[in-house]
Design a protein around this nucleic acid. Structure first.
Lengths: 366, 366
DNA sequence: AGGAACGTTGACAGCGCTACCAGCAACGAC
DNA sequence: GTCGTTGCTGGTAGCGCTGTCAACGTTCCT
């Protein structure tokens, strides 16, 4: 008898089939489309597989079927908190599905992205998640020629390759600035680091809102190509203050910078929000805990990752979403750091659960 | 003539071989061991591959060679900043090598880890990186039976499966507490969230140091199973203060908690470090920027990931490291938050670059 | 009753690559 | 001159699985 084993001692489909008393192809079908089997064979194969501890050989499956069960994910950075939230959503959604995630880091380079894309596509992924809408023309062409579903994440724009999920960074920045105007601020500075396309669009939104109000001045903008950090927030704010001593608010391109600005204010004994208001971007967890609590623009990062992966998997399985472009919007979470300067002298230092007034907005209008 | 193409239009090795005027097997060798070819054929194959834009089919390669070029990585969390640094190191080291990273999240469950391990091993990874030393007996057995190099990361302990790189959380915690004692603190509390094995060992280190000094009291320890956050730091500190109003220092199991404690102190108008000293763990970037700057235990997370992946790849390629167990140590970075209480009334509020006195220690002594 | 339609099963032939071994030329040692 | 040795190359035979198609038994329709 002695059923043959592969050299490495692994259980193959043939062994399972033999134990179940069916042909290998029937056993194969059990794993791909159990409903096609009669109940009897289905249970026989199932128990045989369990008994032998069978695990399919993915390489053989990929080779024979000419497709993989891999979802490629291209993100610009592993450091940035923002992407770790998105990734968590993607991994959570992929769990339980039969797809596995293959992650690659473009390091904010669209040329690197192009190279990775070429590599990915050669392996015929089941689907692809790419960051943003600023691909090289070559990348764009490859994406359009790819015969798998694709989701662009992090922002929305015209002309999606396939599916798209994100929000308008431009509108979000405009809303943040509008909020500061509502609170009576006029000299509103912008600090930004690592000017990737999304940060650039936030800056564009800021500039447009400031110009609308006739308040734009070039010296109110301080940016750098350096990667973001809390410390950098303090440094950029220092520069900003030097350029414009009468500053009454700062809109930070992200929350790390905002925290850095807050600490720098404390160092300089600048009262927040009495003298200067601070608004961040992303609404990381610590913003609600800081003293004073920090206003920020909440973005649905986890949700974005999770939904992107879910949509992608459904599309792979043939269920294309009714709406291929999804605007997840944003919310300006108003906290103490942007209270009006004429409010009662010092902001109430209540517990961490300080009431958050929220302003919810969808970011697109199509 | 017309060389056949695979259905999907992809270039196969056979096409490259034909164009180069060699047999497929020679072309194959070019990609695996170029030195075995004569110069002439080598350059011919090389240019043919480039001309056709050949990309190898990894599934076919894996099936034929019975091994993959995948490094499996098992980590407990994607949320935790600590792991994103480690991951970054791993990805950086893998870049440029021919290995790709397959990441899975155990969610702090060793049962989940066991399940994922089974899945990974069935695909014959080239190598494996696993977190910590607390595997289930089944996991342990699988790891020992695996015929690929394995690196355990994040901590060191006796009896490595194969290679190991990390540091002693126990010793690091003891050093942090010792530092506080040196600064004249006695009522030192401990706050910890998500008591994973490594946080538990930090607690053990704290307890032992406190007992050595005859200062241990159960009510000085406040922990919870909830995932960590800045807000939670404030809440746990509140509980700790209720249990021990005469507290003069807090050792936080991580920096998020420490930041939360700092904010809570500010809310309660408790002077740091005059009334209460704060020490965190990990030395995240913001610690040096906070006001006052926050003392923390620096751990070499990026380095750990990078070295783990480098060691693993070398081991896969047959170059086992001379020292399979590497202690990366830690450093207590002394900052304002743990200055002696009797120092000049308020800590100097200098710039972000405040001088950091460092105390470096290896964590093991074998 | 005969035939179409359906559901279920199996045989065959690869998917693209590499392990293994054999073959061949060039070279030096005896 | 013969023999081994080395360096390079090619042929053969799969790796474990699935796509395709044919075959079978059963049910339903006319």
């Amino acid at each position: 008898m002695g059923r043959k084993r592969t050299k490495s001692g692994k259980i193959r489909l043939a062994e399972v089939a033999e134990l179940a008393g069916v042909s290998p192809i029937t056993a194969s079908r059990f794993f791909r489309n159990p409903d096609a089997l009669s109940i009897g064979k289905r249970t026989r194969v199932e128990s045989a597989a369990k008994e032998l501890g069978y695990v399919p050989n993915l390489a053989a499956r990929a080779l024979a079927s000419q497709r993989t069960e891999v979802i490629g994910v291209l993100i610009p950075s592993l450091t940035n908190n923002v992407f770790s939230d998105v990734l968590r959503g993607i991994y959570d959604a992929s769990e339980g599905s039969r797809y596995s995630i293959q992650l690659s880091n473009t390091r904010y380079s669209i040329l690197q992205e192009e190279k990775l894309l070429r590599l990915f596509l050669a392996q015929k992924p089941a689907g692809l998640i790419v960051t943003g809408i600023d691909q090289t023309p070559e990348s764009r062409a490859m994406l359009e020629a790819a015969d798998c579903p694709i989701v662009q994440i992090m922002e929305i724009g015209p002309d999606p390759v396939d599916m798209m999920i994100g929000f308008s960074h431009y509108d979000a920045a405009r809303a943040a600035v509008a909020h500061l105007f509502e609170q009576g601020r006029r000299k509103i500075g912008f600090v930004g680091a690592r000017m990737d396309p999304r940060v650039q669009r936030r800056l564009d939104g800021y500039v447009s809102a400031m110009k609308d109000a006739g308040s734009f001045e070039q010296r109110l903008v301080v940016t750098t190509a350096t990667p973001t950090s809390v410390t950098l927030g303090g440094a950029l704010f220092t520069d900003l203050l030097a350029a414009e001593p009468n500053l009454d608010a700062v809109f930070c391109a992200n929350d790390d910078l905002a925290l850095g600005v807050l600490f720098e204010c404390r160092r300089r004994e600048i009262a927040v929000p009495e003298q200067i208001a601070i608004v961040g971007f992303n609404d990381l967890e610590f913003m609600a805990s800081a003293v004073p609590t920090l206003t920020s623009v909440r973005t649905n990062r986890y949700e974005m990752g999770r939904t992107a992966a879910t949509m992608l998997i459904e599309a792979i399985d043939g269920q294309r979403p009714e709406r291929p472009v999804l605007d997840l919007g944003f919310r300006v979470i108003e906290r103490q750091s942007s209270l009006p300067r004429h409010s009662d002298s010092r902001p109430a230092v209540s517990g961490a659960g300080a009431t958050n007034k929220m302003v919810a907005l969808p970011s697109s209008h199509d």
